[in-house]
Simulated scan of single mutants.
Amino acid sequence: MSRSLRRGALAASALVISLATLTACGAGNNAQTLGVEPDSAAVTVDTISVQNATVVTQPEADAEGPAVVTGTIFNNGRSAQTLDTIKLPGRNATVKLSAAKGSGPITVPALGSVQLGGEGNASAVIENGHEAARNGDVQEVVFTFSETGDVSLQAFVSPAASYFKVVGPSMLPMPAAPAGTPSGSPSEPGEPGSTETPAEGGTPSESSSSSH
């Protein structure tokens, strides 16, 4: 092969490698571009998308108390929808929904989103959470919307620890008081029931009864 042909082959190879590199750089690390599914539960039905859905329980495995359903709901439609119910099929559990403000339903605005869980956000509280889910399980969660209807996914069950702590149940069990701790506050000096000895220096009656 002549030198000119070899130079042409090398140049073509370099061009192919350069194009492949640029294509890979252009793709970036976006999960959708790379076709990688996220670790957290996510689903899209019609104009509704539910992402990062998780059932968050008490931080201690044997602690009694409520659990919560967390996640972000996106409405890509041109009309608002309400989240009517959340159900956990196969579990004897009631999920109480509360809007971020007021007593009305949870409304997902058109072309907007709603966050479930966390301070100042809407909430979905599983009242008997200790019986409804176990840490490490995968639980089916069904969101029912006013127009889209049922949106179902498989959500992980995790304790309110690490980054789930800020979106976990707000009603956490109170630690038990140590044995022997008095129920009331200690008496102040001079009050009935006080066992404190008065400071030295005499009583008020001594100054009035002293002889000259």
Rank of each mutant, 00 (worst) to 15 (best):
N75S: 15
T54K: 03
S98R: 15
G112L: 05
N128H: 07
A31N: 09
A53E: 13
T72E: 15
V95I: 14
A27T: 13
L97S: 13
I126L: 03
G35F: 04
V125W: 03
T54M: 04
I48M: 09
T70S: 14
L111V: 02
V45T: 12
V114N: 07
A110K: 01
Q51L: 05
E64H: 09
A27G: 12
N76L: 15
N52G: 00
A24I: 10
L22H: 06
I48R: 01
G120H: 06
D84Q: 12
G65Y: 05
R91P: 03
G117D: 10
I17E: 00
S103H: 03
S103E: 08
R78A: 13
S49Y: 02
G28Q: 15
V108P: 01
T57E: 14
Q51S: 11
L116V: 07
P105M: 07
P109V: 08
V125T: 09
S79N: 13
T23W: 06
G104W: 05
G90E: 10
T94R: 13
T94V: 10
L19G: 01
G120D: 03
I73F: 10
D46Q: 13
N52I: 01
L15N: 02
T21R: 08
V43T: 15
A124N: 11
G77E: 12
N52P: 01
V36T: 06
G65Q: 06
T82H: 04
A110Y: 00
G118K: 09
T85P: 04
D62V: 07
A110N: 01
I17V: 07
E119Y: 14
L88A: 08
P89Y: 13
Q58M: 11
G35Q: 07
L116F: 03
G129N: 02
G77K: 12
A100I: 00
L22Y: 08
S18G: 05
A31Q: 10
G120A: 08
Q58W: 00
Q32K: 13
T21N: 05
A42Q: 15
P109W: 06
N29E: 08
S79H: 10
N121V: 02
G104K: 06
A63V: 06
T70Q: 09
I48N: 02
Q51G: 02
T94M: 12
V50M: 01
A61N: 08
E60D: 13
S113C: 02
N121H: 12
E60P: 00
G118D: 11
E60R: 06
G104E: 05
T107C: 01
L22F: 11
P109K: 04
A67R: 11
T72F: 07
Q51H: 01
H130Y: 06
P59T: 10
I17A: 11
G117R: 04
I86L: 15
L83F: 04
A63F: 06
A93T: 12
L83R: 03
R91S: 11
A122W: 00
G104C: 11
A42F: 04
D39N: 13
V43C: 08
V95F: 07
